[in-house]
């Protein structure tokens, strides 16, 4: 294990998709999602084609379907919202299983669901095939403002530490017979959230001191990586190019 399991979403492997430089994968993802979003909702076949493309990427990256499905839980709030749309929207009504639903609402719900699902799956695929450090380097190479990349890097580094702090506080509460299910316990939970914030803030100060002690003067040293070979560019361009072809076809077809 040379890089460790860098984050929860990352799935160790060595495939074509894993090996692509992160900044290419990131650009490819953004272009792909933009293309999907620009597709008219009533071209149902286009969305099936997009899903097919992602299927090809998943096979190429050796990411099993169950792995993706479990991580799609993150989409649930959108699903709930989408399911409400046909009920609350106005306009022409149609009868579905005895329910009077809005036609426009149904289309809007489909639009939201289809596009969100494809976006989420594409992001999961990126996360599953790119470790955190590569992602950060990718963002850096895409010239995202250095400050933002630094913030993301610190988040990746300290997430485990903060979660550890939180778990220790939980254990300390549980050990003293605290049962956080009661509404009256909200105050305790709010306070521990506050305490966690203060702890994290103080750690931030200590980290800053440690950085100063090693000569930090406001800019992170830049790590240099070799430029991506043209072949990698070509591979990374496949997904957005195919998506673009589908999107154009969906616009021009009658």
């Amino acid at each position: 294990m040379s890089t460790g399991h860098a984050h929860l979403l990352y799935r160790h492997g060595d495939s074509v998709v894993h090996r692509l430089p992160a900044h290419l994968k990131l650009s490819s993802l953004v272009l792909f999602v933009l293309t999907v979003v620009a597709t008219p909702a009533h071209r149902y076949w286009a969305f099936a084609a997009y899903a097919g493309l992602l299927g090809v990427v998943a096979v190429g990256g050796r990411v099993p379907i169950g792995y993706i499905a479990r991580r799609m839980v993150v989409e649930l709030p959108f699903v709930v919202f989408a399911l409400l749309l046909p009920i609350v929207a106005t306009g022409d009504r149609v009868n579905v299983l005895g329910l009077s639903l809005s036609e426009a609402g149904l289309l809007a719900a489909w639009n939201l669901l289809a596009k969100a699902t494809i976006g989420v799956v594409a992001s999961i695929l990126l996360a599953a095939t790119t470790d955190a450090r590569a992602l950060l380097l990718g963002l850096q190479r895409l010239r995202l403002p250095a400050r933002l990349v630094e913030i993301a890097a610190f988040m990746v580094r300290y997430l485990d530490v903060v979660v550890g702090d939180l778990q220790r506080m939980r254990i300390a509460q549980d050990s003293r017979a605290f049962d956080g299910r009661h509404l009256g316990h909200l105050r305790v939970i709010a306070r521990s959230a506050g305490a966690l914030f203060v702890r994290t803030y103080e750690r931030g100060e200590r980290v800053h001191l440690a950085m100063l002690a090693r000569g930090y003067s406001g800019a992170m040293p830049i790590s240099d990586a070799p430029p991506a070979p043209p072949a990698a560019w070509a591979v990374a361009a496949l997904l957005p190019a195919a998506a673009l072809a589908i999107a154009v076809a969906s616009r021009v077809s009658p």
């Binding site: 890089t3 860098a6 955190a132 450090r133 950060l136 890097a153 610190f154 990746v156 580094r157 300290y158 530490v161 750690r203 200590r206 980290v207 001191l209 440690a210 950085m211 090693r214 000569g215 930090y216 992170m220 040293p221 790590s223």
Partner: peptide, 16 residues
């Protein structure tokens, strides 16, 4: 944990 803030050990040692 205050001292090691970079994504990998190598990056961290290189920071100074």
């Amino acid at each position: 944990d205050d001292q090691l803030f970079m994504p990998t050990v190598r990056d961290d040692v290189a920071f100074g």
